[in-house]
Amino acid sequence: MSTLPYAGARVAFATMHGKEQLAQGPFYDTLGAGVVAPTGLDTDQFGTFSGEIVRTLSPRAAAQVKARLGMHLADTPYGLASEGSFSSGLGFLVEHHEVLLFIDEIRGLELVEATIATSPLPPARPIATVDAALTYATAIGYPAQGLILRGGAAGEIIHKNLNSLEALRSAMSQLLLHTPGRPIVISPDYRAHRCASRAAVIITLAENMARRLATPCARCHTPGFGQVGIERGLPCSDCGEPTRVIAADIFGCGNCPHTLRTARASRVAAPQWCDSCNP
């Protein structure tokens, strides 16, 4: 354990919603590093899922700012931050983007692990009755899975720390009383401590990051050698033209230009993915 580059390191996870607990296992088991949450950190200032504070930064930029603030408050050169976004452009499906960023101020490293997946939770929807709120809550697994109620003339009345059916009934009744005829929107609460499916994604990214930090570059020996991109262009099995199917994974170093191309197992793509054969 003592030969690992981050053995005994103290890593600040910039969070106020318990994310440090999600990274503690992977970082200690793989790296021998401890992960803590800085005290006095307000990550809501960079935007909230409930909409009181609008997000103005890209996910990566927000993670950078959070991580560096957490490092400053915890007085450590190592930082972590994650940023999640959820969109329901497909109507009934919710796409979950999650970014986990690690900063090593001593080595000048800034590494990102990210994923895009379909959330198991339904999108937000307008409701008009207490019964509709209870039906939605039951479907998403409330109260273990949190939810958000938003009402008022401009959606300015927000309830997001509800933890029982009684609290939900009371909050919904208040919104119906104070904003008659106005739409009330109910949605999942995506904060990590109220959303088990998002927490699981962050754990997976933390495991990936820990393994990456345990992997040195073959050229400069800096930790953090890992996947940095993909290469599309797998040839069509019928016409041989390049398709948009992934042909290889690209691994790289965060410190030097060294990269490694690893071809995927498939050597050809089905014609259905070929723009020439199937325009």
Rank of each mutant, 00 (worst) to 15 (best):
G141M: 05
L80D: 02
L121M: 02
L121P: 00
R182D: 02
L134P: 06
M71N: 01
A81V: 01
G91S: 11
T138N: 02
H96D: 03
E83K: 02
S58F: 06
K160M: 11
S58Y: 01
G79A: 04
R182S: 11
F49S: 12
S88N: 13
P122E: 01
F92S: 08
S58V: 05
T135V: 15
I106R: 15
L57C: 11
L176K: 02
P77V: 13
L176R: 14
T135C: 03
L168D: 07
A154Y: 06
A114R: 14
P123I: 08
V99K: 10
G91M: 06
L80E: 07
G146Y: 06
L109F: 14
I116P: 01
P183L: 00
E113D: 03
L80P: 03
I140T: 06
A67W: 05
I53S: 14
K160F: 10
F86W: 13
L73D: 03
I116F: 01
A133M: 02
G51S: 14
A74H: 01
P123D: 14
H159V: 06
L165A: 05
V65E: 12
M172V: 05
L111G: 12
A144L: 04
L100K: 08
A61H: 12
V112Q: 10
F49R: 08
A63P: 14
H159F: 11
G89C: 07
A153S: 15
I127D: 09
M71I: 03
A114S: 13
G51Q: 14
G155A: 08
A132L: 10
S85A: 15
E166N: 14
A154E: 10
L80M: 05
R169Y: 12
R55Y: 08
G181F: 05
I116L: 14
R150W: 03
V65Q: 15
G151E: 10
G155S: 13
L80N: 01
A74P: 02
G146M: 12
T115D: 05
T115Q: 09
G141A: 04
A167S: 09
M71H: 07
L149I: 11
L100M: 05
S85L: 15
L165S: 08
V130D: 00
G70W: 04
L73W: 06
V65M: 10
T138D: 00
H97E: 14
P120L: 15
A63Y: 15
L175S: 10
K66E: 05
Y142M: 00
E105F: 11
A167Y: 01
V94S: 13
G84I: 10
M172P: 00
T179I: 00
S170I: 09
I127R: 11
T118M: 09
E83D: 11
P59L: 08
A117S: 10
A133N: 08
N163L: 10
P59W: 09
G181V: 02
E166M: 09
R68F: 03
L162V: 12
I127L: 09
P123F: 09
I158S: 07
E52G: 11
M172G: 00
R182V: 07
A62P: 02
R107C: 03
S173C: 04
L176W: 01
G79W: 00
Y142F: 07
L101F: 00
E110T: 14
P126K: 08
S173T: 03
Y142A: 00
K66A: 04
S87Y: 09
V94R: 13
I158K: 10
V65T: 15
T118E: 13
S58A: 10
L134M: 12
E83G: 11
A114I: 06
E95I: 15
G91Q: 03
L162K: 11
P180Q: 04
G51F: 13
V54M: 13
